[in-house]
Amino acid sequence: MIRIKCPYCGERDHSEFTYGSDASIKYPALDAPESEWTQAIFFRENIRGMQKETWHHTNGCRLWLEVERSTITHEIKSVKACHPQIEKITKSKL
Protein backbone atom coordinates (compact mmCIF):
# COMPACT_ATOMS: atom_id res chain seq x y z
CA MET A 1 0.00 0.00 0.00
CA ILE A 2 1.45 3.34 -0.96
CA ARG A 3 0.58 5.99 1.62
CA ILE A 4 0.16 9.46 0.16
CA LYS A 5 0.28 12.54 2.37
CA CYS A 6 -2.51 14.61 0.92
CA PRO A 7 -1.81 18.23 1.87
CA TYR A 8 -5.48 18.69 2.63
CA CYS A 9 -6.60 15.35 4.14
CA GLY A 10 -3.42 13.93 5.64
CA GLU A 11 -1.83 10.55 5.02
CA ARG A 12 -4.13 8.16 3.19
CA ASP A 13 -3.99 4.85 1.31
CA HIS A 14 -3.26 5.20 -2.37
CA SER A 15 -6.48 3.34 -3.10
CA GLU A 16 -8.32 6.56 -2.26
CA PHE A 17 -6.51 8.23 -5.14
CA THR A 18 -6.42 7.82 -8.87
CA TYR A 19 -3.11 7.95 -10.67
CA GLY A 20 -3.11 10.63 -13.33
CA SER A 21 0.01 10.75 -15.42
CA ASP A 22 3.52 12.04 -15.77
CA ALA A 23 3.37 15.57 -14.35
CA SER A 24 6.20 16.79 -16.52
CA ILE A 25 4.04 16.66 -19.65
CA LYS A 26 3.53 20.18 -20.93
CA TYR A 27 0.27 20.31 -22.81
CA PRO A 28 0.52 22.67 -25.75
CA ALA A 29 -1.89 25.51 -26.42
CA LEU A 30 -5.24 24.41 -27.84
CA ASP A 31 -4.32 25.86 -31.21
CA ALA A 32 -0.80 24.42 -31.27
CA PRO A 33 0.11 22.26 -34.25
CA GLU A 34 -0.75 18.59 -34.47
CA SER A 35 2.86 17.49 -34.08
CA GLU A 36 3.19 19.15 -30.67
CA TRP A 37 -0.03 17.56 -29.49
CA THR A 38 1.06 14.17 -30.81
CA GLN A 39 4.22 14.32 -28.71
CA ALA A 40 2.38 15.50 -25.62
CA ILE A 41 -0.40 12.95 -25.77
CA PHE A 42 1.23 9.82 -27.08
CA PHE A 43 4.88 9.87 -26.11
CA ARG A 44 6.28 9.32 -22.64
CA GLU A 45 9.65 9.55 -21.02
CA ASN A 46 8.55 6.58 -18.90
CA ILE A 47 11.07 7.32 -16.19
CA ARG A 48 12.56 4.43 -14.27
CA GLY A 49 13.34 6.19 -11.03
CA MET A 50 12.06 9.33 -9.31
CA GLN A 51 9.32 10.98 -11.33
CA LYS A 52 6.87 13.77 -10.83
CA GLU A 53 3.37 12.56 -11.47
CA THR A 54 -0.22 13.57 -10.80
CA TRP A 55 -2.71 11.83 -8.53
CA HIS A 56 -6.34 12.77 -8.03
CA HIS A 57 -7.73 12.43 -4.53
CA THR A 58 -10.88 10.96 -6.01
CA ASN A 59 -12.33 9.58 -2.80
CA GLY A 60 -11.19 12.50 -0.70
CA CYS A 61 -10.85 16.22 -1.21
CA ARG A 62 -10.79 15.92 -5.02
CA LEU A 63 -7.50 17.79 -5.27
CA TRP A 64 -5.10 16.95 -8.06
CA LEU A 65 -1.70 16.43 -6.48
CA GLU A 66 1.82 16.48 -7.79
CA VAL A 67 3.65 13.57 -6.24
CA GLU A 68 7.35 12.88 -6.52
CA ARG A 69 7.65 9.11 -6.38
CA SER A 70 10.09 6.42 -7.34
CA THR A 71 8.72 4.12 -10.00
CA ILE A 72 11.10 1.43 -8.76
CA THR A 73 10.55 1.44 -4.98
CA HIS A 74 7.34 3.52 -4.81
CA GLU A 75 8.97 5.70 -2.18
CA ILE A 76 7.43 9.17 -2.12
CA LYS A 77 9.62 12.23 -1.74
CA SER A 78 7.12 15.05 -1.88
CA VAL A 79 3.45 15.83 -2.38
CA LYS A 80 1.84 19.14 -3.21
CA ALA A 81 -1.33 20.44 -4.77
CA CYS A 82 -0.99 20.92 -8.52
CA HIS A 83 -2.86 24.20 -8.55
CA PRO A 84 -0.41 26.92 -7.43
CA GLN A 85 -2.93 28.84 -5.37
CA ILE A 86 -4.28 25.75 -3.65
CA GLU A 87 -0.70 24.77 -2.98
CA LYS A 88 -0.08 28.08 -1.22
CA ILE A 89 -3.17 27.69 0.94
CA THR A 90 -2.53 24.07 1.90
CA LYS A 91 1.10 24.84 2.60
CA SER A 92 0.27 27.68 4.94
CA LYS A 93 -2.13 25.38 6.77
CA LEU A 94 0.54 22.78 7.48
Binding site: T18, G20, A23, Y27, T54, H56, T58, R62, L63, W64, A81, C82, H83, P84, Q85, I86
Partner: peptide, 13 residues
Protein backbone atom coordinates in the same frame (compact mmCIF):
# COMPACT_ATOMS: atom_id res chain seq x y z
CA UNK B 1 -16.07 15.35 -13.49
CA UNK B 2 -12.47 14.20 -12.91
CA UNK B 3 -11.52 15.49 -16.33
CA UNK B 4 -12.83 19.00 -15.60
CA UNK B 5 -11.04 18.99 -12.26
CA UNK B 6 -7.83 17.88 -13.91
CA UNK B 7 -8.04 20.58 -16.54
CA UNK B 8 -8.74 23.30 -13.98
CA UNK B 9 -6.18 22.18 -11.41
CA UNK B 10 -3.34 21.18 -13.70
CA UNK B 11 -3.63 22.75 -17.15
CA UNK B 12 -5.77 25.84 -16.93
CA UNK B 13 -4.88 27.06 -13.47
Amino acid sequence: MSWLEELLQTRWT
